[in-house]
Design a protein around this nucleic acid. Structure first.
Lengths: 339, 339
DNA sequence: GTTGTCGTTGTAAGCCCTTACATTGACGCA
DNA sequence: TGCGTCAATGTAAGGGCTTACAACGACAAC
């Protein structure tokens, strides 16, 4: 009955006295059209307030210029920063970002991927390699390109843009061990289905073995992301009879919590115990004492991932793995062991 | 030539020996189809690995089940938390989220809105009321519903789901003034085109007037989001001859920076100076001293916004403003003025 | 047995672009 | 003048789904 339809390509074409093909060309490949025609058409476009119908365009081109990302959570500063950079770069390249969060839940991630694909994502950004194989099967079946980030693993089947979590933590651990620490402990995010966390733990153990320590005896506690949890975890690690002199944290948030836990227990950092983080989020530069941590180039990673995906989609460039480098940030929370 | 096309509705229909209409109904309104037919069809769907073509569906329904959000930045914990909740709720309701960030730049926001609309967003989430009028014109022209958040302003032309920034800060300021503080100062995010920041400042000034102080004399410094900036701003405010005894910060991040600035300058909080934040992000519960701040229900806000938009899209429910309530969190960083 | 009703399924008309291919026309050159 | 060339434009065929409406068939009521 009543139709206040927005104008279509055809409306513009008729109004401007040209064919729909010409209008389409004016919009998408203006160089293929005479300046005169182009002006006439563009004038009509603005006059009518025309804007292309998304669905029709998506159908005709089989593209949406939208890329999906499934991340554990945006609330974690680590992901927020990388994701922000990813979005900014996508924007520069003419793409939009769809976000879904899996809350570290395996089945949920499957559903999210399915949904993003159903919503027309041209490609996907994923975090880490470990996930339900269904996801890879789905992506292969639908021929959706995907890129793994927050880790770099040349041995994995899929391309990744990230850094070597294991090597980074190993380097840090060596520094700590060189200071003479013997009793280490680790507080990590839950290890199950988190290859980044697993790799970091592995790096620590590697270094221990190098230094002749028994890595099997390493006390390990697992806590979800959260400052409060860091404090709790710290207390848990310190209540045994043989207290560690250096506590490695899988991420800075837990480490900041540990610093707080130490303060609550009246312990001096690093006098009584050293605390080491991972990520170098902004927060770690303002704690007291300043946090020793591994600096991760999150923004660079997000940007590179965006560029790689877009080049793949636009120019058919192969999706290749890229390794980014981390750096140790040795700050006040690390010192020699007590005594 | 070579086509490894993915199966279409038609393929499924032929294979299952029914019409495309029936297949479509099985997928979208299963209750309208006999159980027997439905089973047969669904079996074929899985057998063929069929999944609907996004573009075609979008074209036929004029819907994408995708909602866009334009936020200043995801890196700010405040937005990250609310956005996360928004996304989770959208997901529960069967929608996807597209994110764009404006970096507080007016023109960029216009472009982002345009892009999200062009990418088929069914509706938009926006932060605050102040923006280029072009945006509202565009949304009206294309009939894209939108909802404003992070603020509640019944006098504004557009519906909003949020809280009264002015009243919240006014309440906090009263508490501080009741303690006897006379020399106040404000550190805020840049005020230009940020109605939330402006409202918070206004609330502070209101309270000052109530208590007989000259609000025009209030020292104000503006710094972008960032812990480091908070420290810088603090130093700036404390270097005058008449030092403030209470510093109001427009957000917790600046406040945390201020705490750090105080420590750097060897000042005691709240002995020498009280520091007050806004937002109650996780961080504020672990600083030393704990931060006095205004608690904002970011998650609740995100959820409500999602529900309101979806109800509007699905059930044509009117988009109505909702006011959420903030709470004062009086913690150790606030004390009586020195002397 | 006929007719009417109603629940189920089928038919086919859009929805609005893009683009391969066809057509046109201007121009240069013989 | 006639012809070939090439750039500019037009024609029309999809592309895959939803849905109004038509058709059908089973069953109940008379």
């Amino acid at each position: 009955m009543m139709k206040a339809q927005s104008p279509t390509l055809n409306d513009v074409a008729m109004q401007a006295g040209v064919s729909t093909a010409t209008v389409s060309r004016c919009l998408n490949e203006p160089e293929k059209v005479t300046a005169k025609t182009r002006e006439k058409v563009m004038a009509t476009v603005t006059a009518l307030g025309y804007s292309p119908n998304f669905g029709a365009r998506a159908m005709a081109t089989q593209r949406t210029n939208t890329i999906g990302a499934v991340i554990p959570t945006m609330e974690n500063a680590i992901f927020a920063r990388g994701l922000q950079a990813f979005q900014e770069e996508l924007w520069r390249l003419g793409f939009n970002l769809m976000v879904a969060s899996s809350s570290y839940q395996r089945e949920l991630e499957v559903a999210q991927v399915r949904s993003l694909v159903a919503r027309g994502a041209d490609a996907l950004l994923l975090i880490g390699h470990i996930r339900d194989p269904q996801i890879y099967a789905l992506l292969d079946a639908q021929q959706i390109p995907s890129l793994v980030t927050w880790t770099y693993d040349p041995s994995a089947a899929r391309p990744s843009v990230g850094f070597d979590n294991c090597a980074a933590m190993r380097d840090m651990a060596r520094k700590v061990l060189e200071l003479g620490h013997q009793r280490l402990a680790m507080m990590t995010a839950p290890l199950a289905r988190n290859d980044r966390a697993q790799a970091r733990l592995l790096g620590l153990k590697d270094a221990m073995v190098e230094f002749g320590l028994n890595s099997d005896a390493l006390p390990i506690v697992e806590y979800p992301y959260g400052i409060e949890n860091g404090a709790i975890g710290f207390a848990a690690l310190m209540q045994g009879s043989t207290k560690p002199t250096a506590i490695f944290c899988g991420n800075d948030v837990l480490a900041v919590g540990a610093l707080r836990g130490a303060r609550d227990m009246g312990l001096n950092v690093p006098g009584d115990v050293s605390i080491i983080g991972f990520d170098d989020i902004e927060l770690s530069q303002v704690t007291y004492p300043l946090l020793t941590t591994v600096h991760v180039p999150h923004r660079d990673m997000g940007q590179r991932a965006a560029r790689a995906l877009v080049r793949h989609l636009n120019d058919d460039a192969p999706l290749e793995s890229q390794e980014l480098h981390t750096e140790l940030r040795l700050r006040a929370s690390l010192g020699p062991p007590p005594r």
